[in-house]
């Protein structure tokens, strides 16, 4: 697994301490598009090791973080750089479109 699992307990710490940009994929088991995007993110993680960390947070098991961030759609992918939210991507997209969105972080 190239992707990192985040929880309500670890989210703040991981974002703060990440030395590279970190993309957090907010997802849930019942969400079809989330399941489709998962292997794409896995690929992006493998192909860009050292440049970006790809992490996942299950909103069903970790509702506090999602709620605090005001997330109302999944998949939502937030990219944090230097501890700050730098980009939000909403909805599943094909890999080339995702890579275009992430270009400035790679």
């Amino acid at each position: 697994m190239a992707t990192k699992i985040l929880t309500d307990a670890t989210f703040d710490e991981e974002i703060k301490n990440s030395t590279t940009p970190i993309l957090v994929d907010f997802w849930a088991e019942w969400c079809g598009p989330c399941k489709m995007i998962a292997p794409v993110l896995e690929q992006i993680a493998n192909e860009n090791e050292g440049k970006i960390v790809i992490a996942k947070l299950n909103v069903d098991e970790n509702p506090k973080t999602a709620q605090a961030l005001g997330i109302t759609s999944i998949p939502t992918m937030n990219v944090y750089k230097d501890g700050q939210l730098a980009k939000t991507i909403v909805g599943a997209k094909p890999k080339p479109a995702l890579l275009a969105d992430l270009a400035s972080f790679l």
Binding site: W30, P33, C34, D60, I71, T72, S73, I74, V90
Partner: peptide, 17 residues
């Protein structure tokens, strides 16, 4: 406001409401 209350997928996003 997409992803901030505007949604196109009830099965994905109903949970948040």
């Amino acid at each position: 406001l997409s992803g901030r209350g505007v949604s196109y997928c009830a099965t994905c996003d109903g949970f948040f409401f």
